[in-house]
Design a protein around this nucleic acid. Structure first.
Lengths: 217, 217, 217, 217
DNA sequence: ACGGACGGGACTGCCCGTTATT
DNA sequence: AATAACGGGCAGTCCCGTCCGT
């Protein structure tokens, strides 16, 4: 009666399909409105109206207005985990993180990563101009730090509950990414975000404990 | 009518004093209620009622409920800037940051840093249990990163607009602090937060690019 | 500085007057809509829209939709307590209750008892057709029964905690009133409710233990 | 497909039995939850969850949350009608009502009246602690007053549409019952409800128009 | 028959602009 | 002129009850 359920791509029921369509429509409508009127000026009722559902339904799909935006980050995290797992196990840690991160950023930047990729720069704009989105994004990132720590600990072959290094590396790597993306937003539009990310991780690899300048002043 | 306003220490007017008292009373009442009923369960009306002002007045002193909590962090940043400036100029960068940070944390932890210090652990509890407070705190921290970058750039003798390193170091140092405080919250109550902070910065100084384990499993 | 505040009639500020007007307008609009569409079918938004305030404002004046209706009962209770206290102390109990009740009903029925009186029959309809209003009304009445018992006990010169009679009389009198009003709703529009109430109380005074009919059928 | 459905006693099918079990389980779960958290605070979802059905299914059995509670009272009314019809026709009215009422209460109180009887005191607890349940119950009682009036009118040999007395007696008798049960809830657990009911009806029979105390205080 | 999705209404809290009061 | 009360609007939650696919 239930033939083969397992692959994540499987979209058997009529019902599931409708849900996916509603969800995607909400995201699309939200991004449209955000782009046109700004994030704070867009009300949830407007988003819901655009898709012709009730605002109540919006909340069945997203816990808050910010969550629509964060959907994209979810995908990025997922992609990152896959990329990290694909790195050769004998690579030094930060090198592997750099390679994985840069690869994911490049994919999203160039729209190679599915539906959500095309909204990469749009999300960056929102993060730039809407404090509450930024706040939620930061929150989500730190919430993900636990999972990141776990994966890094596995790579290092240590226990994250006793060794503080995985957690620290996870957090620092996340920060480096944020700094790089932040810098990217401040540059000309045609700069490659991936390049800036690569540079930031390279600095990390080289160490940050810069000596005081030889000639003081 | 406004004679000589300039020095920040000036607390001459009767009016200013009353404002300070109202402000402090609001903070005190807020922390009392937060401690007793939790952050989200406490309404602004309750805080205002406890001090016998209107809730509208609350908003003259704080932009939001979260801001009451973040008052403390302001003090910490201020203290940190002073501590960093006091480090000898020939110290390597991360070493100076470590010394400054550890000193500030130790002072607050031990209640040596004025009125707000005694609420250090209370704030940590709020950060732990109230997502919105955490979000605002993270937001505030990244907002402060610009100023941090500037100070670090001065120490390094470079221009933060062309050299990405100060910004990266500022962000990474902030992250290290957060990770350490986060770890501290998960330990027994009598652990020293300052010690954990020191350890995190020491790891940073040593570099994070750990090699892959010799025996691959 | 504050000249003579004490009388309940005092309505000095422009503000208070506006509040009273808003409140009264909400009540009026609510009753209009209830009358036209029924209680459940009327939404708070509609009431608020009719007065051109936000629905949020509605809730500043009434805790719930039902509370609009119960406003009237408050006035009736207050009037009744006054009327009962005014009866000569040597009147038999049910007689005093009858006189007080009939007086109050007559005043309300004829619109002599302030603004709310004109809505007497409308409230009765609501009580009849809207379960949730009835429920709240009954709740309010039972809450008031204690107070009624107390007043009756005082008149009887007994203690209501040991003597069951005051409570019984209070409840029975309330029931007689309800029955009379219920019968009145089923009659032609120009019947006097007060007359029916008077008749019901007279029956109570005469005793209800009717003998079986002499000729059984 | 539906073999022989006619007699109400017929409980042949496996399906019907399951339905009865579900229904009974819902009632039981509802009463448990009402007792523990109160009526209002209990949601239909919780009741449904406790029986492991969807809330949708709940609505297949009961039109609303209140209906669960009122199930029991239905049985009591039915029993009362039977008891009243069994009284000798030459008994005075209130006497007959007293005998019938006391008998029914005694049966339920002692669990002699089928499944629902065992929940008698449970329902009383609900009536005691949840005003809204009480309200609903009163509402149902008033709804039943019409039927009661009819039966009483038959006994009196009059027409209830022209003679107000049957309606008044029906309502007053219901009130007396309520007052008695209310008083019973406030006494020690082992008091007999039936005794209190008997006392209340006796007071009614004696008349309530107590003279003013000879010595006015 | 069942249950997930949905609609929609009640209600609350936060925050802010306007406006009356002192 | 300073202050706070009032009102508005939006986010967000909860719950009831229905529609429709399975």
């Amino acid at each position: 009666m239930a033939a083969m359920r397992g692959t994540s791509l499987e979209i058997c029921g009529l019902r599931e399909r409708k849900k996916q369509r509603t969800r995607e429509a909400l995201i699309q409508a939200a991004f449209d409105l955000f782009g046109r009127k700004g994030f704070e000026a867009t009300t949830i009722d407007e988003i819901a109206d655009a898709v012709e559902v009730s605002s109540r339904t919006f909340f069945r799909y997203f816990a808050s207005k910010e969550d629509v935006v964060l959907t994209l980050q979810e995908d990025q995290f997922t992609a990152f985990y896959a990329a990290l797992a694909a790195r050769p196990p004998d690579e030094p840690l930060l090198t592997a993180l750099r390679q994985a991160t840069v690869g994911v950023v490049r994919d999203f930047e160039q729209g190679r990563a599915g539906t959500s990729a095309g909204r990469f720069s749009c999300v960056q704009d929102l993060l730039r101009h809407s404090p509450s989105v930024l706040a939620r994004s930061l929150e989500q990132c730190s919430a993900r730090t636990d999972e990141m720590s776990q994966r890094i600990a596995e790579r290092m072959g240590v226990d994250p509950r006793t060794d503080p290094r995985p957690t620290l590396v996870a957090a620092v790597a996340g920060t480096a990414l944020q700094v790089a993306v932040g810098a990217w937003r401040d540059t000309e539009p045609d700069t490659s975000a991936a390049d800036l990310v690569e540079r930031a991780f390279t600095l990390l690899e080289e160490g940050l404990n810069y000596p005081a300048p030889a000639v003081s002043r």
